[in-house]
Amino acid sequence: MMRRSTTPTPSAAAVAVLAAAAGLALTGCGTENVEGAMPYDEFYEQRADYVGQEVTLSAEVEDVISDDGLTIDSATSDSMMVLYDMDRVDVEEGQLVEVTGTVQDAFDPTTLDDQAEEDFTDEFYQDYEAQPYIEATDVTLVAQD
């Protein structure tokens, strides 16, 4: 004779509720979601798909590198350079920003040097040579509660 187990098993609905709650808890990790902006982690995983396209991202400022730009990053993604006129915005390391701009395939300081008439041959910029970057049209500080 087979005995029937008296241990209750979770219903499919209960499992679904627990999975949804776990997903909501994970959403708070990393870069905050900003309405209308793609989280940097999500973008970074598929950055090659966005080359040549305009994107709006929410990301943390890793470093303000000069009057010509900054780097953005997150806890789980590598940094990316953003070229922007930093006289137009006052941001500091660790702040959350919204960046709008066109994703470029590979940073070439010699080409930009000719186009922008800036000296992008500095050692820092050479570290980002041949890496994707963003030519930003707007960088905005995101107010945090």
Rank of each mutant, 00 (worst) to 15 (best):
Arg3Ala: 10
Arg4Glu: 06
Ser5His: 03
Thr6Leu: 14
Pro8His: 05
Thr9Val: 08
Ser11Tyr: 08
Ser11Thr: 15
Ala13Tyr: 08
Ala14Gly: 09
Ala14Asn: 00
Val17Ala: 07
Val17Arg: 00
Leu18Asn: 01
Ala19Phe: 02
Ala19His: 05
Ala21Asp: 05
Ala22Leu: 14
Ala22Phe: 07
Gly23Thr: 12
Ala25Cys: 10
Ala25Met: 14
Leu26Ala: 12
Leu26Thr: 03
Leu26Phe: 05
Leu26Pro: 09
Thr27Tyr: 09
Thr27Lys: 14
Cys29Trp: 14
Cys29Val: 11
Cys29His: 14
Gly30Ser: 09
Thr31Leu: 13
Glu32Gln: 15
Glu32Leu: 14
Glu32Ile: 13
Glu32Lys: 09
Glu32Asn: 10
Glu32Ala: 14
Asn33Pro: 12
Asn33Trp: 13
Val34Lys: 09
Val34Ala: 09
Val34Arg: 04
Glu35His: 08
Glu35Arg: 09
Glu35Val: 15
Gly36Cys: 12
Ala37His: 09
Ala37Glu: 12
Ala37Cys: 15
Pro39Thr: 07
Tyr40Lys: 09
Glu42His: 12
Gln46Ser: 13
Gln46Gly: 00
Asp49Gly: 00
Tyr50His: 15
Tyr50Arg: 10
Tyr50Trp: 10
Tyr50Val: 04
Glu54Met: 00
Val55Gln: 13
Ala59Val: 03
Ala59Ile: 07
Ala59Gln: 07
Ala59Lys: 11
Glu60Asn: 12
Glu60Ala: 15
Glu60Ser: 15
Glu62Lys: 07
Glu62Pro: 00
Asp63His: 08
Asp63Phe: 14
Val64Gln: 03
Ser66His: 05
Ser66Gly: 11
Asp68Gln: 12
Gly69Pro: 06
Leu70Ile: 04
Thr71Val: 14
Asp73Cys: 11
Asp73Met: 10
Asp73Tyr: 02
Asp73Val: 10
Asp73Thr: 11
Ser74Glu: 03
Ser74Lys: 02
Ala75Ile: 07
Thr76Ile: 13
Ser77Leu: 02
Ser77Gly: 01
Asp78Ile: 00
Ser79Glu: 05
Val82His: 06
Tyr84Ser: 02
Asp85Ser: 15
Met86Thr: 02
Asp87Glu: 13
Arg88Met: 09
Val89Gln: 06
Val89Phe: 04
Val89His: 03
Val89Asn: 07
Asp90Lys: 01
Val91Thr: 05
Val91Glu: 00
Glu92Met: 03
Glu92Pro: 03
Glu93Met: 02
Gly94Phe: 05
Gln95Leu: 02
Glu98Ala: 15
Val99His: 01
Val99Phe: 01
Thr100Ile: 06
Gln104His: 08
Asp105Phe: 07
Pro109Tyr: 06
Thr110Pro: 00
Thr111Asn: 09
Leu112Thr: 00
Asp113Gln: 13
Glu117Ile: 06
Asp119Phe: 08
Asp119Ser: 00
Thr121Lys: 13
Thr121Asn: 15
Thr121His: 00
Thr121Arg: 14
Asp122Lys: 11
Glu123Gly: 01
Phe124Asn: 10
Ala130Glu: 12
Ala130Ile: 10
Gln131Gly: 02
Ile134Met: 04
Ala136Pro: 10
Ala136Glu: 04
Ala136Gln: 03
Val139Met: 04
Val139Gly: 00
Thr140Gln: 08
Thr140Ser: 12
Leu141Cys: 03
Ala143Met: 03
Ala143Cys: 00
Ala143Leu: 01
Asp145Phe: 00
Asp145Arg: 08
